[in-house]
Design a protein around this nucleic acid. Structure first.
Length: 936
RNA sequence: GCUCGAGUGGUGGAAUUGGUAGACACGUUGGACUUAAAAUCCAAUGAGCAGUAAUGUUCGUGCGGGUUCAAGUCCCGCCUCGAGUACCA
């Protein structure tokens, strides 16, 4: 029988489907939850890079299933959000339609690879039964606040009853920071709107009117992690600052816990480091500077209070709130112009313009809290409004930015470092200096002065120690159509949530779902988008002036709202009463291994940890981290092909062939390039009749291509479709080859040529079972060599899967099959174990052979072979014999020999004698079972 | 700039955590089978030098030092590439 992979794979995929082989439920077996980050169905379909992580997780899941675990291994779709909507807009279709089509396409492609997903648990974030719970969590956040005393989220009702009974006393400091102060009587005299405004400062999901990242081309607001290098992550469009009323999640309250939690999870260090940097904790001091001739003051944050006597000016951000108060009449016009100019700049311009120092003098002065000197207050965009207090103390001697600023605007640069030359730049090291011109700190170094100055600052009550985080609250509103509606309506201007019983608040039908440049949300186009409080349902906008009917929030949620908690829903996907039942939560608990890309480090992987901690605080979950272990699979790089223009020719443009016209090379779709890296002239002419071949370098009527490795992407014309590989070699070959390419976490280039090695390995394996087309197995006792080869492989493969070192597993399979082939092994006991052994890697292949050798049950629950030490015990060792560390020859000796006996054997060996040449060795090192080294 | 990570044959990558560097595969070369091709199988394959040959010998894990009987692996100092981040006070 031939290895007919097409037939076999089809047969077993159907078998698994009809027999629901991979569906799981509660069980007395130990649980294991293995998850892949779910895909967003994009329209381009899968390329061979996508399934890399899925294959690894599938092998791991199947292996664990063979080892007696009840494995939850689900899959679904992140089907709301920008990617899905962008594709719909590009193709001019409704996102609902394209999303469905894309999901079907993905499913077909996934099914061909033979994954062990439990599809009965599939979820889609755009499904109302799913997003009902996404909305519910939002409402929970809206109705919660972060209790700084207990350090956890609590119901806002607690806070309200506290204010009702005691006023604001317990939260005095926090309220003062917000600009409030009230006792019980005063609180109770506030009206609904006033109370709502105060509480809004506490809610974990809150409405605010502030600066956001606005992307005009996408027509929406973006969160910080959705912006890369000042442009939008999706599409690369410019981003500017804009003041917009929007919803935010108060993730910043969780900064410390998000940071600490990293220590107890087994996630890749680089990824944890990225999250740490993103959270950006820094310890310092906040200092108050009085404004001259005024009762106002400016608070600054500094990590270098030791340099306080080097302050020669203060700088505030252009967005600083008290700015008009500080502006003197003489400078008002200049200041206005400067602020205007800054606000027009896009994020990218501001970044690329880093070297240009700009600013304007406010006209006011502050007083140095320790030496009483007059300090000019400047306004500059090198100070960020969103970090710290939006104001800094300028220490030109100790900070390069302050130095550049002072130099440009001819501000005093006092030196505070003994014998250090600061004429060309600031000295910002924390070591190697002694202070001068610093009164009581003179002669002290960093550590000594730090303690003294902090004591002084706190004693004199001019500031206090403070911990500052970079992490900012997450912008939650999107002015887009394809997302979860925010379940809020506005009753007399006060936001109210729709209650759980009335969810989901379904996305309305609209005539036009396109985003607008001015930021109006497409939901505004809906004719029925008003909430009737009495009937608890959405009704026509015409009724909006009726009693009990109010406008509903027009913005939708960001893409990450649905993906921040989806892993819980797989545990209990069709529960209509709870987002996940207590039983399911207690049994499946958390993810044991989570596979996904590191590009989500500061997005999904941070937001989801925040959601987890929040739901944990409210006792909905039993763990405050949701994934014990995370594996970042690397990218598979594609081969891009280019043909080069002859030098001196004019630029050639073609819509069909060329995507890279700015350089002297022209991108060619890789599928037209032959194995000699050439592309046929006729193909290009067929693609584009205007193609001017005279402009390019030719050889034998073919164009010479140059290959470069890049990320695989449809727009780069370098994708390899897994379907094609499945057609040509089969899914099992694809699965094994992807693993064979290299370590899972590494980026590596795809090279289709290499696949033949894995394919012929499978054929070789297959052929061990057959003789002239018939199954032909021997039922005798296996030989010692056969058993050794098998058990060596069992040991290596079991250990390596556990370590997720899957590339080396494939190697050991190859070694084993090579050995067995040369022994002409057809022993049933040996081959039976090998079939189970390879079944996680090549499941169709294994099922077929399993049934061929007479089994009627599926192989997936079969117990994985255990290796037995006794087959591996060696009695002899081939010792490498080195002289001064260089191996000269090998010597086969019994492992029973002790050091003295080995030494005797080695020294009496003729080669040793000839190398020693009658000299005595200085030293002989013998490590039994390992090496022999003779020093001469 | 800062913070991580990585540099091993023509290529992808192995190497029991200090113990025979280059497993396994691709590619290449030669051979067998075939009218031929594909498929399959066999052999060689880090570089150099000497030899008809078996073999011997030198160099070799980015570069320069060090520790050690022994270093791809540990330590110090550089170089290059990749990723993340970016006026964070």
């Amino acid at each position: 029988m031939k290895y007919n992979f097409l037939e076999i794979e089809k047969k077993w995929q159907e078998f698994w489907k009809t027999n629901k082989t991979y569906n799981v439920g509660f069980s007395s077996k130990p649980k294991l939850y293995v998850l892949d980050m779910f895909p967003y169905p994009s329209g381009a379909g899968l390329h061979v890079g996508h399934p890399l992580g899925y294959i690894a997780s599938d092998i791991y899941s199947r292996f664990k299933r063979h080892n007696g675990f009840n494995v939850l291994h689900p899959q679904g779709y992140d089907s709301f959000g920008l990617p899905a909507e962008q594709y719909a807009i590009k193709t001019g279709q409704h996102p609902k339609k394209t999303t469905l089509e894309n999901i079907n396409m993905y499913r077909n492609q996934l099914d061909r690879i033979g994954f062990s997903f439990d599809w009965s648990r599939e979820i889609r974030t755009s499904d109302p039964d799913y997003y009902k719970w996404t909305q519910w969590i939002f409402i929970l956040m809206f109705n919660s606040y972060y209790c700084s005393i207990e350090n956890k989220a609590k119901s806002i009702e607690n806070l309200i009853s506290l204010f009702d009974n005691e006023g604001g006393e317990k939260y005095k400091d926090e309220l003062l920071d917000m600009g409030y102060s009230f006792n019980q009587l005063e609180w109770n005299n506030f009206n609904t709107k006033e109370k709502s405004e105060i509480l809004m400062n506490f809610r974990l999901a809150y409405l605010t009117n502030g600066e956001v990242n606005w992307c005009e081309d996408l027509g929406t607001v973006l969160a910080n992690d959705e912006i890369i290098n000042g442009v939008s992550e999706r599409g690369g469009y410019p981003v500017t600052k804009r003041k917009v009323k929007h919803w935010c999640l108060r993730i910043s309250k969780y900064s410390e816990r998000l940071l600490k939690g990293l220590d107890k999870i087994d996630w890749p260090d680089p990824l944890k480091e990225m999250q740490r940097n993103w959270i950006g904790k820094s310890k310092g001091v906040s200092l108050t500077f009085q404004v001259e001739n005024s009762n106002k003051s400016i608070e600054v944050f500094t990590t270098r209070p030791d340099t306080i006597f080097g302050v020669s000016f203060l700088t505030i951000a252009p967005e600083y709130e008290d700015i008009s108060y500080l502006s003197s009449n003489d400078n008002k016009l200049d200041i206005k112009e400067y602020i205007n100019e800054v606000s027009k700049k896009s994020e990218r311009d501001r970044l690329s313009d880093i070297k240009t120092v700009s600013g304007v003098f406010s006209g006011s002065y502050a007083i140095h809290p320790l030496n009483g000197k007059k300090l000019p207050i400047w306004i500059s965009d090198y100070v960020l409004a969103s970090y710290g207090t939006g104001a800094v103390m300028g220490v030109p001697a100790g900070d390069q930015r302050d130095f550049d600023f002072a130099k440009k605007f001819k501000i005093d640069i006092p030196n505070i470092f003994k014998d250090i030359d600061i004429s060309n730049g600031a000295f910002s090291d924390k070591t190697g200096f002694k202070l001068i011109n610093s009164e009581f700190l003179d002669g002290k170094d960093y550590n000594d002065s730090l303690e003294l100055i902090i004591n002084k600052i706190e004693n004199e009550n001019i500031g206090k120690s403070k911990i500052q985080y970079k992490l900012r609250d997450a912008t939650f509103s999107r002015q887009r159509y394809w997302g979860e509606p925010i379940p809020i309506y506005y009753k007399d201007g006060v936001p109210k949530n729709i209650s759980l019983n009335d969810l989901p608040l379904k996305l309305p039908e609209v005539d036009n779902f396109l985003p607008t440049k001015n930021g109006d949300s497409p939901l505004g186009n809906s004719k029925a988008w008003a909430w009737n409080e009495k009937d608890k349902k959405v009704i026509s906008n015409d009724k909006i002036n009726d009693i009990d009917t109010f406008p509903i929030e027009l913005n939708t949620m960001p893409g990450w709202a649905g993906s921040s908690w989806y892993f819980h829903r797989y545990m209990d996907p069709s529960n209509n009463e709870e987002f996940v039942s207590k039983d399911s939560m207690n049994y499946w608990s958390d993810i044991d291994v989570y596979f996904g890309g590191s590009e989500h480090a500061t997005g999904h992987l941070l937001y989801s940890r925040f959601y987890q901690k929040f739901l944990y605080d409210l006792d909905f979950l039993n763990k405050d981290e949701y994934a014990k272990k995370l594996v970042n699979q690397g990218m598979i790089l594609g081969n891009s092909a280019f043909i080069y223009r002859k030098s001196g020719t004019l630029e050639y443009l073609s819509k069909n062939l060329i995507s890279d016209i700015k350089t002297d090379k022209v991108r060619i779709d890789i599928k037209y390039v032959d194995s000699e890296n050439k592309v046929d002239i006729e193909i290009l002419k067929k693609m584009d009749k205007d193609f001017k071949d005279s402009l390019f370098v030719l050889e034998d009527d073919k164009f010479i291509c140059v290959r470069e490795q890049e990320k695989m992407s449809k727009s780069k014309f370098n994708v390899v479709n897994p379907d094609e590989i499945c057609n040509q070699y089969g899914a099992d070959t694809l699965r094994m080859y992807e693993m064979f390419l290299g370590p899972i976490e590494q980026s590596k280039p795809w090279d289709t040529r290499g696949i033949s090695g894995v394919h012929s390995f499978l054929k070789k394996f297959w052929n061990l079972f057959f003789n002239e087309g018939e199954i032909n197995l021997s039922d005798t006792e296996p030989s010692k060599e056969e058993l050794k080869s098998l058990h060596k492989t069992i040991k290596k493969v079991s250990e390596d899967i556990e370590k997720l070192s899957l590339n080396t597993c494939i190697s050991s399979f190859m070694i084993c099959i090579n050995e067995l082939s040369s022994m002409n092994c057809n022993n049933r006991l040996i081959l039976k174990d090998l079939v189970i052994l390879i079944s996680p890697f090549a499941p169709h292949f294994a099922e077929e052979l399993w049934s061929q050798i007479g089994n009627s049950q599926s192989i997936v629950e079969e117990t994985y072979p255990k290796y037995e030490e006794k087959y591996l015990v060696e009695s002899e060792k081939v010792y490498p014999v080195s002289f001064n560390g260089k191996t000269k020859f090998t010597l086969n000796l019994s492992l029973d020999l002790n050091i003295q006996e080995i030494e005797k054997e080695v020294l009496s060996h003729e080669k040793t004698k000839s190398i020693l040449n009658n000299n005595n060795p200085k030293k002989i090192i013998i490590v039994p079972g390992k090496i022999i080294n003779i020093v001469i």
